[in-house]
C-alpha cells in the first residue's frame, strides 16, 4: 500500500489554461464564468484574486475536474502537453484542490480522511502532513466535525501541502485560520515549495498579507479575467500622484484613473500605468509627489462596484474590500 511508483516524483509542475469558458448553473441565471480565458504558468505561485461571487471557486473546481464547463475548454498538464481536466485520471491524480469545506469525512477522525488521500495521491508525504498538523496544533485523532473553523482549515492545508500535486490549489482555505496560523501556513508552503517546485494557486480576497508570495496574479471579476500577469509587473502598474489638482490633471494625461481624492486644491489620483524616467522627472519638477499603488489598492480600485471618486486614494490605508455578495 505504501509502495508508490517512482515516476510520481518526476512529474513536472502543471500549467493550466481556460479557453473561452462559460459555466452556467441555471439556464436563465447569470453565468458564473462568462467567456473566461486564463493561463496559469507552470511552476509559479499564482494568486487568483476576486471579490466574493466573482467566480473563483467555480473556476478552480473546473481545474480539478469537479465539474465540466458549460462550454469552452479547461486544460491542465505538463507544459507542452495540456489536456482536458474533466474525468481524466492523469489530470485528477496530479491536481489537488482543497476547498474550505475540506472534502474530508466529518464524523470520522482526521487521520481516516488523510489515509484516503494517502492511498490516492502518488506523491503524498505523510511526514509533511504530520508536520503541518503539529505546527497548526491539530490532533489527528479528533473527529473533523469537532474541530474549530481554524483547525478545520489547518486540516485542509495539510491535505494540500502533503499531496505535493504538480498543480495544488488552495481555495480560500486559510481564511478560517487566525493570523499566527496563517503565517505558519505561508512559511510551511514556501519552504516546501522551494524544495519541491510545483504550481500552486492561492485564491483570496484578502491580499495584503499574501501578495508577496505570488509570482503571478490573475484577477477575476464578474466571471471574467480582468487581468493576468506577473506579480512584479502588476506592482509597478499603478502610480499615484499628489499635488495641485490642475498640475496632477496635466500629468495624468489619458491614463486610466483608478481613484481620485481631493483636499482643497490638492488632489491625489491613482492611475493605471507607469511613468518613465523623463515623465517622472517632469512631474517631480512640477512639484508632484509620485508613489506606487499596492496590489491590494489596485485590486480594490479595479473591482470596485462603481467608479466612486470618494474612494480613499492609494496613499491612505484602504479598508478591507467590501464584503458583499
Amino acid at each position: 500500500m505504501t509502495a508508490k511508483p517512482e515516476s510520481a516524483e518526476t512529474v513536472a509542475p502543471f500549467a493550466a489554461e481556460l479557453r473561452d469558458v462559460v459555466v452556467r448553473y441555471d439556464r436563465d441565471g447569470e453565468p458564473a464564468l462568462d467567456r473566461t480565458d486564463l493561463t496559469i504558468p507552470a511552476g509559479t505561485i499564482t494568486g487568483l484574486l476576486g471579490r466574493n461571487g466573482a467566480g473563483k471557486s467555480t473556476l478552480l473546481s473546473l481545474l480539478a475536474g469537479f465539474r465540466r464547463p458549460t462550454s469552452g475548454e479547461v486544460l491542465v498538464g505538463e507544459p507542452g502537453s495540456l489536456e482536458a481536466a474533466y474525468e481524466n485520471p492523469w489530470a485528477s491524480m496530479n491536481v489537488q484542490l482543497v476547498r474550505e469545506s475540506g472534502d474530508v469525512w466529518g464524523d470520522e477522525r482526521v487521520s481516516e480522511s488523510l489515509s484516503h488521500y494517502e492511498l490516492l495521491r502518488p506523491a503524498w508525504d505523510a511526514d509533511l502532513a504530520g508536520l503541518v498538523l503539529d505546527t497548526l496544533e491539530v490532533d489527528r485523532c479528533t473527529k473533523y466535525e469537532a474541530l474549530s473553523r481554524g483547525k478545520k482549515s489547518a486540516v485542509a492545508a495539510a491535505v494540500g501541502l502533503a499531496s505535493r500535486a504538480p498543480l495544488t490549489i488552495f481555495d480560500e482555505v486559510y481564511l478560517g485560520m487566525d493570523a499566527p496560523s496563517r503565517y505558519a501556513f505561508y512559511d510551511l508552503l514556501l519552504a516546501d515549495y522551494a524544495e519541491h517546485p510545483r504550481t500552486i494557486v492561492l485564491s483570496s480576497h484578502l491580499i495584503e498579507e499574501i501578495e508577496r508570495l505570488f509570482e503571478h496574479v490573475a484577477i477575476l471579476d464578474h466571471g471574467r479575467t480582468l487581468l493576468s500577469e506577473p506579480a512584479e509587473d502588476l506592482r509597478g502598474r499603478g502610480t499615484s500622484l499628489t499635488g495641485p489638482a490642475d498640475v496632477v490633471a496635466r500629468h495624468v494625461g489619458d491614463r486610466r484613473v483608478l481613484s481620485e481624492q481631493r483636499l482643497g486644491r490638492t488632489a491625489q489620483v491613482a492611475v493605471l500605468g507607469s511613468f518613465d524616467a523623463a515623465q517622472r522627472a517632469a512631474a517631480v519638477s512640477d512639484g508632484l509627489e509620485l508613489d506606487g499603488v499596492t496590489l491590494q489598492d489596485l485590486f480594490v480600485h479595479l473591482t470596485a462596484t462603481d467608479v466612486a471618486p470618494a474612494q480613499p486614494g492609494s496613499g491612505a490605508p484602504v479598508a478591507q474590500p467590501q464584503e458583499e455578495r
Binding site: L190, E195, R212, E215
Partner: peptide, 17 residues
C-alpha cells in the same frame, strides 16, 4: 534565495530576480 524567501515570506522567484 530559498532562505531569503522563507525568512521574509517572499516568492523565491522574486528573490531570485
Amino acid at each position: 534565495t530559498t532562505q531569503f524567501a522563507t525568512t521574509f515570506r517572499i516568492n523565491p522567484a522574486t528573490a531570485a530576480k
